[in-house]
């Protein structure tokens, strides 16, 4: 039987309590806001890129454990990645939380901890807010991202 602890795994509780890469990045060259109007979660994503490479990434804002842990895990995973690799992970992660498809858990690493979200459709937007914001940054979108 499904257990609530499958959703709130240790790694999620930990990243919610002590989010990594939390705070403003002073030398960011790309910044974008994401907002979930349904629940009020909001975050700002800061990126420092060098050509096609993500040198540094951070976020701040407020939200539920799923959204904070997701942003914390995502930023951890993105450091040093190329923008193409980031887009690849975006697709992989999207499949992880919205489909029953096989996903490359090796490539996802710790991000796979969010797999439990797929059993809670109402919470998919919490986990994906930071990712949609990252995707928009990479696409060069200047408008704040809304999950609605």
């Amino acid at each position: 039987m499904f257990d609530i602890k499958d959703l709130y795994q240790e790694v999620i509780v930990d990243h919610n309590r002590s989010p990594r890469n939390f705070g403003k990045l002073d030398d960011a060259n790309k910044t974008l806001e994401g907002f979930n109007p349904l629940c009020g979660d909001r975050l700002t994503l800061y990126l420092k890129t060098d050509g096609n490479k993500i040198d540094d990434i951070a976020f701040d804002g407020s939200g539920c454990a799923i959204s904070v842990a997701s942003a914390s895990l995502m930023t951890d995973a993105m450091k040093g990645k190329s923008l193409d690799e980031a887009e690849g992970l975006f697709n992989e992660f999207h499949d992880l939380i919205t489909t029953e498809n096989e996903v490359d858990t090796e490539q996802l690493g710790k991000l796979a901890a969010l797999a439990g979200v797929r059993d809670y459709p109402a919470r998919v937007k919490c986990a994906s807010l930071c990712w949609h914001t990252l995707h928009a940054v990479i696409q060069g979108d200047d408008n704040p991202v809304s999950t609605e």
């Binding site: 609530i4 009020g40 939200g63 454990a65 799923i66 809670y120 919470r123 919490c126």
Partner: peptide
Amino acid sequence: GIHPHDIGTILDDEGIAIRAGHHCAM
């Protein structure tokens, strides 16, 4: 330390329906 949406989800897992959010009263 626990966001209302997480409370809502954990209670739902116990069969309990509550509302979590701004209640259309921002």
